[in-house]
């Protein structure tokens, strides 16, 4: 069970694709001016990523390593095309707001990166867990930034107008870039602080253990 915990924590926090690895910046900068579309983007990537991870990991013994990249691309492209069709049919609002970025999921480095780094080395279940964790990490990161940008840049939250005052630049990709950078800084700061606290605690524990051992001896 520990294995899955590690996969989940890695995907969500320690190797968060947006904040730690800075992957998939194109849709991030393009879409976080609206919380709704950034969350939709995140969830779409979550689904595509999980499915592609499952398929690729299932086929990892079949696909010769010489042609693995073309195979991955074909699989991912198929899934994305399917996602587009699905969204256009059932969620036309989201489809409209994502626009061209939906098709760009094909070349989203998160998906190909996870396929290359994880799915072709691990079993189906682990890969699925990894896909879900990474997708969730991406979704949460995008949604947080989407909320910040939309609230400050448009004065609204998920489309509902809250205040009149707004800083228009934060609703543009340029402002999104600023918010992105600041969010990374805050995230890394928090993680670092947490790690330090954990290390101090572990050291203390180790020292006590040592002392106890000595006393016992």
């Amino acid at each position: 069970m520990n294995k899955y915990k590690k996969i989940t924590l890695d995907g969500l926090i320690y190797q968060n694709p947006t904040f730690m690895l800075v992957l998939g910046t194109c849709p991030t900068l393009g879409l976080i001016s609206s919380a709704f579309s950034s969350m939709g983007m995140g969830l779409t990537v979550l689904v595509v990523l999980t499915l592609s991870n499952i398929i690729i990991s299932a086929l990892r013994k079949v696909i010769p390593s010489a042609v693995r990249i073309p195979c991955y691309i074909v699989i991912i492209a198929t899934l994305v095309t399917f996602a587009r069709m699905f969204l256009e049919k059932f969620l036309p609002d989201l489809y409209d707001s994502l626009g061209g970025f939906l098709a760009l999921i094909v070349v989203n480095c998160i998906i190909l990166g996870r396929a290359e780094a994880f799915a072709n080395k691990n079993g189906v279940l682990e890969s699925a867990a990894d896909g879900i964790a990474n997708g969730l990490g991406f979704t949460v990161a995008l949604t947080i930034m989407g909320v910040i940008c939309e609230f400050l840049g448009k004065g609204s939250l998920f489309g509902a107008q809250i205040m009149e005052f707004k800083i228009g630049m934060l609703a543009t990709p340029a402002g999104a870039f600023l918010v992105y950078g600041l969010c990374i800084a805050v995230f890394v700061y928090i993680i670092d602080g947490f790690e330090r606290w954990r290390r101090v605690k572990a050291n203390k524990l180790a020292r006590e253990n040592l002392l106890n051992a000595k006393e016992a001896a």
Binding site: P64, M85, E88
Partner: peptide, 30 residues
């Protein structure tokens, strides 16, 4: 040889994807 294996795998993946998308297109086309 590996070359033959590669060709077969790629063709299969393409075929399956193509068939899947064709069916889905029929089902989901707007």
């Amino acid at each position: 040889s590996t070359a033959f294996k590669c060709i077969i795998t790629l063709t299969c993946v393409l075929l399956v994807s193509g068939i899947f998308l064709t069916i889905m297109n029929g089902l989901l086309a707007v």
